[in-house]
Nucleic acid binder design. Structure first.
Length: 125
DNA sequence: CACCTGACTGAAT
DNA sequence: AATTCAGCCAGGT
């Protein structure tokens, strides 16, 4: 079970990627929510760092991760200045001046929708 | 091995 | 209500 450790990328980043892949279309979550779900509530900043490292991997919907008040703080790391916003708007999210409108109804908290035990049991990828 | 860097956050101002 | 501060910690150098 814990033996498959062939991958070089840090476990933490991989776990972040796995959570982000589970964010439903049209919903978003925050760096802090992901950190708390992974049991490291003080690593929100590192979650952002992981998102930066995910830009090779098209299977990670990085545009669905925003800061705790719904600001698109990571937009600068997408190609062009509007890609992050465009992707969100294509999923029905309304963004005004880099801020998601009706944010509280769009947030998807992994702690409410995923089971941590199942998540940690299941193998990466 | 000892720094340095931040897609962050909550508390203090 | 807006802004600044300081702690945070996985990776990179």
């Amino acid at each position: 079970m814990g033996e498959t450790r062939l991958i070089m990328a840090g476990d933490f980043f991989l776990k972040v990627f796995r959570v982000v892949r589970l964010i439903p279309e049209g919903r978003v979550t925050t760096y802090g929510h992901i950190a708390r779900f992974l049991g490291t509530g003080r690593s929100a900043r590192v979650v952002g760092y992981a998102m930066n490292a995910s830009h090779n991997d098209r299977t990670v919907p990085a545009h669905r991760v925003v800061n705790r008040v719904g600001l698109l703080t990571g937009k600068h790391f997408f190609d062009g200045t509007t890609l992050m916003r465009d992707l969100l708007e294509s999923e029905g999210i309304v963004v005004v001046e880099d801020k998601i409108q009706e944010f509280s109804s769009k947030v998807w908290d992994p702690l409410e929708h995923l089971n941590q035990d199942d998540f940690f049991e299941s193998s990466p990828q």
